[in-house]
Write a protein that binds this DNA or RNA. Structure first.
Lengths: 112, 112
DNA sequence: ATGATACTTAGGCATATACCTAAGTATCAC
DNA sequence: GTGATACTTAGGTATATGCCTAAGTATCAT
């Protein structure tokens, strides 16, 4: 029953970390092998690997190993669950605006 | 410079917790006072308050106190930053599909 | 003024996270 | 076979997170 929520939870937890988000951003461009993914970070390899595992467990990425090289890819549609949830959290006011096809200029958060 | 990323980070961290997500979902319907928000949870009030604070610090919700009652509301547009980021993480294949106006039937995640 | 309400503040604790180093294991190149 | 390469596995640590109880503070009701 809580399939959807569990998936959403895993995805959000995974994306809550900057390193993992950076990996997702990189993989959005194209697949890459572990060492390529690790290169931009000052982190030890095992640490980065943990992040990759979290992403894979969340279903955000997939991997395939050929020889000693593992290639990681962003799972197409993996972010759909988030997109879906996001759509449900629109305030009544926003829904109204949607209906009218209005684009509101947002009141900015406080700081510029 | 990292304004956007900081905001995104705060939002994602805030949404990574199920309790906080539940609060957001509740507030998406309408504003509510603290005790209303706390009611559905078995959690002690101070614990729930901490969550509310995280949400407010992330800019997801706002609050106003009148007398001894504090009313919390979902900040319209607060989730825009996430929506935006999400749009950027589409794979080349997905972008292609977008361009064609194609709706792919997703390969489901492994478990039904 | 007195008690009940509706939060708030102030510690404290236990588990979860993010990292690291050291020591494998499997391939690949010679 | 040997060494280099590309991960993997196995602990271990330090901080962050989530939750709690106890003790306020500010309002509101009588």
């Amino acid at each position: 029953m809580p399939k959807y929520h569990d998936a959403l939870d895993a995805v959000l937890r995974a994306l809550a970390d900057p390193t993992r988000r950076a990996v997702v951003e990189r993989l959005a461009k194209s697949p890459a092998v572990v060492s390529e993914l690790a290169a931009p970070f000052s982190m030890a390899l095992p640490s980065l690997m943990q992040h990759l595992r979290v992403l894979e467990d969340a279903g955000l990425i997939t991997s395939e190993k050929h020889g000693r090289v593992r290639t990681m890819s962003l799972r197409p549609g993996a972010l759909d669950v988030l997109h879906l949830w996001l759509g449900e959290q629109r305030t009544p006011a926003e829904r109204q605006a949607d209906r009218l096809g209005v684009h509101l200029t947002r009141t900015t958060p406080k700081e510029t």
